[in-house]
Design a protein around this nucleic acid. Structure first.
Length: 112
DNA sequence: CACCTGACAGAAG
DNA sequence: TCTTCTGCCAGGT
């Protein structure tokens, strides 16, 4: 029930804005967790973005694979199913070179 | 309520 | 460029 935080709806609205921001990252481009949080009006909540994406349902239509850690590093556990899927998709969009563990933000970084 | 953990980030060595 | 440490925030135990 109603516990913690000013209003429960605030956190919910925040999640909605974060989801919308991730959804706004175009194919062939990638954004960092911190960037997504900032664009959504939640500066400093990079970890919240990670939490949100970690809880996405399996068949989500959200382009979660276009969200990476600072400096373009891939944050998912190397070799994990999610990591392989992310690399596969990024490779498909020409954002990641085969075998690479990070994307070139100078080249494919999202500039909203 | 204290303590731990994590799909983070930035600074320092 | 990589590793370690510190700061942060939300959830879980």
């Amino acid at each position: 029930m109603a516990r913690r935080s000013p209003h429960p709806s605030d956190a919910d609205a925040a999640r909605q804005r974060l989801l919308a921001t991730v959804d706004a990252v175009p194919p062939g481009r990638v954004a960092t967790y911190g960037q997504v949080a900032e664009e959504a009006g939640l500066p400093g909540r990079a970890r919240l973005v990670g939490r949100l994406l970690a809880g996405l349902p399996a068949g989500s239509a959200l382009p979660w694979h276009r969200v990476v850690a600072a400096g373009g590093r891939l944050a998912l556990p190397p070799g994990s199913p999610a990591d392989r899927e992310q690399r596969r998709r990024l490779r498909g969009e020409g954002s990641l070179l085969p075998g690479a563990r990070r994307v070139d933000l100078a080249r494919v970084g999202w500039r909203p």
